[in-house]
């Protein structure tokens, strides 16, 4: 069996398979299906300074090989997370990483500060790429200037591993990645969802209450793979890849393109045990090709 350990900056992973924010709850939702401690990490739901109700129903539309969501960061706020949710996940023996969102730079800073002192949380993922909120969110992640500014401010307030989650809704994602790297991001993760739309022709109405929403699932995989490859070839910090991963072969493609680890999102809804299958599949692939360590395939694409 090959060595699956991998480091993302200061963050140590027992393996490169993690689950994406907003698609895995807080972890316990999946514990009936498999031992969630076996995976490399769990990115919990987007967390904000204060309680958010999210957008009105309907928030979901199925699309060809994917789905649109417009959840809008429903969560009970960072204090509730620390006081009530964290105690229920503290025994999960893997990295619990909080996805931090905000409407203003101050929101991001205050939320990050509160999480900095929490021992169980080794990293945060700065979500500057949510397409489903009116203020903040993606607005920060679609210009180099604002992305750099929010990362700079949060960097001052947060000492542990700072992962910045990038938006694919930009012309040149490498530019944004370079901008956040320059301001002290320890790593980047990509992609968040692509802005999309669905219409009910019978009713002549949008399907989602917010009209537009974020596209995820296999439909976005080729775009995600291209962006991971571009970013991995531009920055020096580690890259975490995601977007449409349904099986081990998909995950391996992201590793070959230059991702040091991957996250699985939408696939968890269809097969709640998919993360374990991806992990076993990566193992099998490494053995079959005679690799001693997963690090040997990271960025090993031959072009």
């Amino acid at each position: 069996m090959a060595n699956l350990n991998i480091n993302i900056g200061k963050l140590q992973l027992k393996n490169p398979v993690m689950t994406a924010s907003g698609t895995f709850g807080y972890g316990p939702e999946f514990s009936d299906f498999f031992d969630v401690s076996r995976i490399g990490g769990i990115f919990v739901k987007g967390t904000t300074l204060r309680d958010r109700q999210g957008n009105a129903y309907p928030r979901m539309a199925e699309t060809p090989s994917g789905m649109l969501n417009a959840v809008g960061l429903q969560n009970k706020g960072v204090d509730y997370f620390i006081n009530h949710i964290l105690p229920t996940v503290k025994d999960i023996d893997t990295n619990i990483i909080v996805n931090v969102s905000g409407s203003t730079i101050n929101d991001y800073i205050e939320t990050a500060e509160k999480l900095n002192s929490i021992e169980k949380i080794p990293a945060i993922e700065l979500n500057i790429s949510c397409p489903n909120v009116k203020e903040g969110g993606m607005a920060f992640g679609t210009s180099c200037l604002s992305a750099a500014q929010v990362v700079k401010e949060v960097r001052r307030a947060y000492q542990k591993e700072l992962i910045v989650k990038l938006s694919p809704n930009v012309t040149d994602i490498s530019e944004i990645a370079l901008a956040v790297e320059a301001e002290g991001a320890d790593s980047v993760s990509l992609i968040n969802t692509l802005l999309g739309m669905a219409i009910d022709s019978e009713k002549r109405k949008p399907v989602l209450s917010t009209i537009t929403g974020g596209l995820s699932g296999p439909a976005v995989k080729p775009i995600a793979l291209r962006m991971v490859w571009q970013v991995a070839n531009s920055v020096k910090i580690p890259v975490i890849g995601m977007g449409g991963i349904m099986n081990a072969a998909d995950a391996i493609e992201f590793l070959l393109a230059g991702a040091s680890a991957i996250q699985i999102g939408t696939a968890n809804f269809i097969d709640p045990t998919v993360a374990i299958k991806v992990l076993d599949g990566i193992n099998e692939y490494l053995d079959r090709h005679g690799f001693q360590s997963v690090t040997e395939i990271i960025g090993a694409l031959e072009v």
Binding site: F24, G25, E29, G54, Y57, P58, R59, M60, Q74
Partner: peptide
């Protein structure tokens, strides 16, 4: 309500 997961992981199926 329309659902994506059915077990509390996605928050797509809410009612007010």
């Amino acid at each position: 309500n329309t659902m994506a997961c059915g077990f509390g992981a996605c928050l797509c199926c809410v009612t007010d």
